[in-house]
């Protein structure tokens, strides 16, 4: 089990029910602890791929295996639990619930995963430690999330993705709302944190400049074929 890659995709095909967009992935692998940058223009299917890996979407054919577990073998409830246990997610923006405090936002994943709750130990101490390491000052922890700058919010989102040590961090353009300096700092912190927890990081972006924070950079077009209306994946 431990030798299984974090993510392995073979011959997966997916199309949105409206037939507007389809994606086919012949082969894709993310090793454990690997930091991988997936480059692609907007609308190229990056988010769809993340949704497939996270189990939010199910492929119409092919196999997606996460940490040795074939997602197709899991029922809806088991899949929800598996995701809660093993994935940390960072969005492009609007990551936080504005009415919760910074600390409460970080603690959200622990509400839904017992495994991560156990791994976090003392939840509050763990959240505060993560926040401090990600450079969110102590005096902000009890503030409503809505009061933070976008840069601070992204770092809170990173702390939340990592609390309870999930094995895989999915990040969907987390730096696109940040300026160059802040993006660099954010990725430094993300890199350091994933290194210390051993989590694999899969980040999708259209920004080539962030490439040096990653072990490997691949272009989406090299692993996936995407298509517009009436694609083969939809029909076949």
């Amino acid at each position: 089990m431990e030798d299984e890659p974090a993510v392995l995709i073979r011959d997966a095909a997916f199309c949105w029910p409206d037939g507007e967009f389809a994606i086919e992935v012949d082969e894709f692998a993310l090793a454990r602890g690997e930091r991988l940058l997936l480059l692609g223009a907007s609308g190229a299917g990056k988010s769809t791929l993340l949704n497939l890996i996270g189990g939010f979407l199910r492929p119409r054919s092919g196999q997606i295996t996460v940490l040795g577990q074939a997602l197709s073998d899991l029922g809806q409830t088991a899949l929800d639990r598996f995701r809660a246990d093993n994935f940390g997610v960072i969005f492009q923006m609007f990551n936080l619930l504005p009415y919760l405090s910074v600390l409460d936002n970080v603690l959200i994943p622990l509400r839904f995963s017992r495994q991560r709750r156990q791994q976090a130990g003392d939840a509050h101490a763990c959240a505060e430690r993560l926040l401090s390491r990600l450079g969110v000052a102590q005096n902000l922890h009890s503030r409503p999330a809505a009061h933070l700058s976008v840069g601070q919010q992204q770092r809170v989102a990173a702390a939340r993705a990592m609390i309870g040590a999930p094995h895989i961090i999915l990040a969907d353009e987390p730096t696109s709302a940040l300026d160059h300096d802040n993006a660099g700092k954010f990725l430094d912190l993300l890199q350091a944190e994933t290194e210390s927890t051993g989590a694999a990081l899969l980040m999708v972006s259209h920004d080539m400049r962030v490439a040096d924070h990653f072990d490997r950079v691949i272009d989406l077009t090299s692993i996936a074929r995407t298509d517009g209306r009436n694609s083969e994946a939809c029909c076949g």
Binding site: A84, V89, L97, F112
Partner: peptide
Amino acid sequence: ILRANGASPYH
């Protein structure tokens, strides 16, 4: 946001 952080549709 809740969903991405582990909430199931039942939640």
